[in-house]
Design a protein around this nucleic acid. Structure first.
Lengths: 337, 337
DNA sequence: CTGAAAGCGCTAACAA
DNA sequence: TTGTTAGCGCTTTCAG
């Protein structure tokens, strides 16, 4: 039988209220009694029951985190940012993998709400009507990380995927390329995969270049689809001269696919990735990529959530963090810049 | 004001006890009343309060997970295994990054216990006296994943790092090498880094080869230390001909270090890694490595924990999962095998 | 098969 | 500065 606040109170010769006060750092306690209580706590090895506290106070100092896949380097880095800021603010994280399945996401949200989390951070590629329905009726604040809500109602922290896609393509255009291919993410994701692709199309059209369907390979962010994409592109009569990939993993796949056929990067083909995960520095040639501040997205999302949980007024509920081109060896050195 | 079990009871015209029964799937409820209650729940949009339930039942269906760094591919994969099995058994995970700092590990353990988790899974490289002191007095079961307790008291799931180190070295020995270098992990980790190194030493000594200090580079599992290790080894008068690395990241670093100096892997130097993270397949040459079942370690650890939480008797509290050599292109094809 | 009632351990007024 | 006293929302005997 564990020791309760009541045991401590008796041992210290005070009331539970007083014990509660010292445990919670309430200043209204005479130093002498505080000392007595502390001694009793020490002596008995008292450990406050957070569940009871949660029930009485209606705050659990726990937030729920819904993530598609914690074993993905991208999301793992985001999660790290979330956890670091959370622990800074004394919150704990209930982490749930959703596998990106909508029904699981919804179900998890509900479980988290049952557990009385003080807030939720949601990562996922798509925000459907159903999501909106659940999220907007949530009794606690929910912020999106690495995605955004199409209607702009929900708080979110993300980059501009469209601009990022545009910039990457532009970068290649500036190198003098006209035959630029793209390995996209799943286009079923309207807010991420599709946006990056839109950026690519826009850059091309702004440059007066017609997009060729044969220069677009629909990937799934994974290494293997980069490999296949390279094979497809290299089998074309008129091959592209540069390839923009919607993820670093695919970019590395593309590079290897190219190298396996005896060509060189960047001499024969230039390749640009997306994300800037650690892998980008662990390949040869090292990968030129769109740097996305993953850790910061998580950290800022969590910080934002703390504000909502504290009832603070938030000026800007949609945060767009900056991205930038990280130039390495998979592209040729541009003259200027 | 959220709807409570009491509201449902009134709406359905029954007692709270009955509502509780149907919510918990207790069979002792007449189908008719069950239907009535379900209707009321639906109608009111009732969502059970897990905190209240936890206080009353003394079970939270939540387990704590202490992890050095969720952004490490190795631990992320373990975490995935844990989470999958946890959700299979309807548990949620409170995930806490410890940064491998002992005081944080201890502090987190305490917080988790305050939150009344039903069990804990601990990942970390070292188990000190202090850990033992805290873990053995825990009111809930604790299982170690990816490490083990030196005294053999605590339940754990791991591989044999010593044997794995031995096998990797042996593998290189079988290829005819006599000058085998090793890039170790931190030797301050007695149960992981040191064990792999011990395996290396043992294999060498069993083969009648004297270990040379200049062939040992003390790394930290990261890519950069592989790079430095390669530089050190290649600057030796008598260079090693094969290098065994205690992590895949370091192995990739070593390979790049070698390639950067104009040499080839495996032609000039053979390299073996450790872990078999996804990266191992995403480099050229693809990495021969010691495959460690990371996902399974997590999954089995969680499964083991469920048994303890259910009060089931466990025959074998120390589980050693198999490892194996995964032969790829960073080593030459051996004739036999 | 159902209801009444006693807590679970703590917080938060409210008094004193 | 401290104590008293209600609950928080639910589970769980124990009766019936």
């Amino acid at each position: 039988m564990p020791v309760t606040i009541y045991d401590v109170a008796r041992e210290a010769g005070v009331s539970m209220a007083t014990v509660s006060r010292v445990v919670n750092g309430n200043p209204n306690v005479k130093p002498t009694t505080r000392k007595k209580v502390l001694a009793a706590i020490e002596q008995l090895g008292y450990r406050p029951n957070a569940v009871a506290r949660g029930l009485a106070s209606k705050r659990t100092t726990t937030v729920g985190v819904i993530i598609p896949d914690i074993s993905s380097p991208f999301f793992a880095e985001l999660a790290r940012g979330i956890d670091d800021v959370a622990s800074m603010y004394k919150y704990n994280i209930i982490l749930c993998d959703s596998d990106g399945k909508i029904d699981r996401e919804l179900h998890i949200t509900n479980t988290l709400l049952e557990k009385q989390v003080d807030g939720i951070i949601f990562m996922g590629s798509e925000i459907t009507e159903e999501h909106m329905q659940v999220f907007t009726t949530s009794p606690v604040p929910i912020v999106l990380a690495g995605t955004k809500d199409p209607t702009g109602q929900l708080p979110s922290v993300d980059i501009s995927h469209l601009e990022a896609g545009y910039d990457a393509t532009q970068f290649l255009l500036n190198e003098g390329h006209t035959r630029i291919a793209m390995v996209t993410g799943p286009l079923a994701e309207p807010l991420v995969g599709m946006q990056r692709f839109e950026g690519y199309k826009k850059a091309l059209s702004d440059a007066g270049i017609n997009m060729k369907d044969s220069y677009v390979y629909n990937g799934d962010y994974r290494y293997e689809s980069g490999l296949s994409a390279a094979n497809q592109f290299l089998s074309l009569i008129e091959k592209p001269s540069a390839i923009f990939c919607a993820s670093d993993e695919m970019a590395v796949g593309v590079i290897h696919g190219i190298q396996d056929q005896g060509f060189k990067v960047p001499e024969d083909y230039e390749v640009v990735g997306f994300d800037n995960i650690r892998l980008a520095e662990m390949v040869r040639p090292r990968l030129t990529t769109v740097m996305q501040p993953m850790y910061d997205i998580g950290a800022v999302a969590m910080r934002l959530l703390t504000k909502y949980m504290n009832g603070e007024k938030v000026e800007n509920h949609i945060v767009i963090l900056p991205h930038r081109m990280e130039e390495r060896q998979s592209t040729k050195k541009t003259g200027g810049q």
